[in-house]
Amino acid sequence: MMDKKNTRVYLMMVLPALVLFFSFHTFPLLQGIFYSFTDYRGYGDWNFIGIDNYINVFRDPRILNSYQFTFKFAIVSTVLVNIISLTVALGLNSKVKFHKTLRGIYFMPNILSILIVGFVFKFIFSVFIPEIGQSFGIEGIAKSILGNRDYAWIAIVIVGVWQAAALNVILYLSGLATIPEDLYEASGLDGASKWQQFRHVTFPLIAPFFTINMVLAMKNFLMVFDHVVALTGGGPGRSTQSISLLIYQDGFTGGQFALQSANAVVYFFVIVTISIIQIRFLQKREVQL
């Protein structure tokens, strides 16, 4: 049991953090849910309109388009980042020269600002690559991919995967470090090939890390914002406008504060639902493996 003095010290340490968390997280969250049932535009008067905003979320073609883009981007990026990260981790886990240095180099993208990285890649996609295409007469890359409604999203995938792979590689390396070398030696004596060792030894033992990476990657990619802002700003048109960017643009500058608040609430439940489904499905796979 804590005495009164320790209790006072405990409260003095916890209360400031609790007040800040409530002020900048919980209160805005509750305020957004409240305004989602009104016609508030971000300024002026407002009235209660019930669930009209939630109905309009599923009727607005711009919102549906942003969901389509975001899910396409998140699914493709999640698959690619896990394939690439696991491949790199397996390579770094083997006996290669300077593997510790390479681990540090591969982790660097994770500590860089997303906006700065995005602006650098924007120059590469808009200027550097088109100049190469024009110099060598390669028409396919002579124009910026960022100006193409059909392919601009691919540039965002490239940047997102390049940066996200850094953390995923570290997580996979942590999982690979838990596998005893004796298992590989025993499987090698039994005549198992490298693929058989990966399928029957490596992957089953790092399955929990695979689950973590899949869930975190999907959640982060569904919330994509900075990459889109830096590369395309949601364009051309609204072809690469993610849900987060739509909520920000139309909610704060488009006079649709209440509608986008409802969109944010729906979006929150979508992400939670997808994460729960992923965890349950992948954990069942862990047991089967």
Rank of each mutant, 00 (worst) to 15 (best):
T253C: 06
L90I: 13
L171W: 13
V96Q: 00
S66C: 08
N56E: 13
W162E: 07
F73K: 06
S174M: 05
L216I: 12
F281M: 11
T26F: 12
I156V: 12
V127T: 14
V157Y: 01
F281N: 00
G118S: 11
L29S: 15
L146I: 05
F21W: 13
T178I: 15
A177C: 07
A177Q: 12
F268K: 00
M108I: 15
L102T: 11
F24P: 06
D39A: 05
I55K: 13
V161I: 01
E185V: 02
T7F: 10
G44C: 06
A166H: 07
G133F: 02
G254P: 08
I83H: 06
S242T: 12
Y151R: 11
L216F: 01
K4A: 13
S126G: 09
G104N: 07
V79W: 05
D3L: 03
S187H: 05
T101S: 03
L80M: 10
W195S: 14
F281H: 10
V201H: 11
A186T: 00
I279D: 02
I145W: 14
V215L: 07
I276T: 15
F269S: 05
G191D: 06
E181C: 05
G32W: 11
L18Q: 08
G255C: 11
A186N: 13
K95T: 12
D150F: 02
Q278V: 12
F281P: 00
V224I: 15
G91Y: 14
V14S: 15
G50I: 08
G233E: 09
T70P: 09
L11S: 15
A217S: 11
S275D: 14
S244V: 15
N110K: 02
V169S: 01
I114Q: 09
L112H: 12
R238G: 12
Y10L: 11
P130Y: 03
I247L: 04
T7H: 07
F98A: 01
L112P: 04
L245P: 07
I179V: 14
F269W: 14
M2H: 09
N56P: 03
I141T: 04
I132S: 06
I83F: 14
A17L: 10
E181M: 04
N168H: 09
D182S: 05
R8A: 11
L205I: 13
V215T: 08
Q31G: 07
I116W: 07
L167N: 09
Y43T: 08
K219T: 14
I132T: 05
I114S: 11
A230W: 06
P130V: 11
S66G: 00
T87N: 07
L259I: 14
S242F: 03
F22N: 08
I274H: 11
L15F: 08
R199E: 01
A89F: 15
K5C: 02
Q134A: 15
S242C: 04
L183I: 10
T26L: 11
R199M: 10
M13V: 12
R285M: 14
L167E: 00
V229N: 09
K100V: 14
L246F: 04
K284W: 12
T240Y: 02
F221R: 03
L112D: 08
A164L: 13
Q196N: 07
R149T: 05
R280N: 14
F128Y: 05
T202N: 04
W46T: 01
I243C: 13
I63D: 03
I63L: 08
F48N: 04
A74N: 01
Q68F: 15
D60W: 07
N47A: 13
